[in-house]
């Protein structure tokens, strides 16, 4: 499907929004860091860092990749394990 806006137009519109979202992420990470207690080893922190790595890549399906990082893995044998194989 044709996308009506060209890339410079999209960047013009989105730059301040992206900047604001990046600042929110940075401030959230700082807040976690400033607070008492330990979160190292928390799976969610690793997910955040893996997602940030995706943002640096030049591919076009970053949203899908981040969705997959935040997803539990699918087990192809689930029907057998649940004893629910199609009759």
């Amino acid at each position: 499907m044709p996308i009506p806006l060209d890339a410079p137009e999209v960047l013009d519109r989105e730059f301040l929004l992206v900047r604001a979202k990046l600042l929110e992420i940075a401030a959230s990470l700082d807040r976690i860091g400033r607070a008492e207690g330990q979160v190292e080893g928390d799976r969610r922190l690793q997910l955040i860092h893996d997602a940030l790595d995706v943002l640096r890549q030049g591919e076009s399906d970053r949203a899908e990749q981040i969705q997959m990082i935040c997803s539990l893995s699918y087990d192809e044998q689930w029907q057998e394990k649940f004893d629910l194989l199609p009759r």
Binding site: Q67, M68, C70, S71, L72, S73, Y74, D75, W78
Partner: peptide, 11 residues
Amino acid sequence: HLEDKYTGTRM
């Protein structure tokens, strides 16, 4: 929702 969506949709 969330982390269960991918597996649940596949199932």
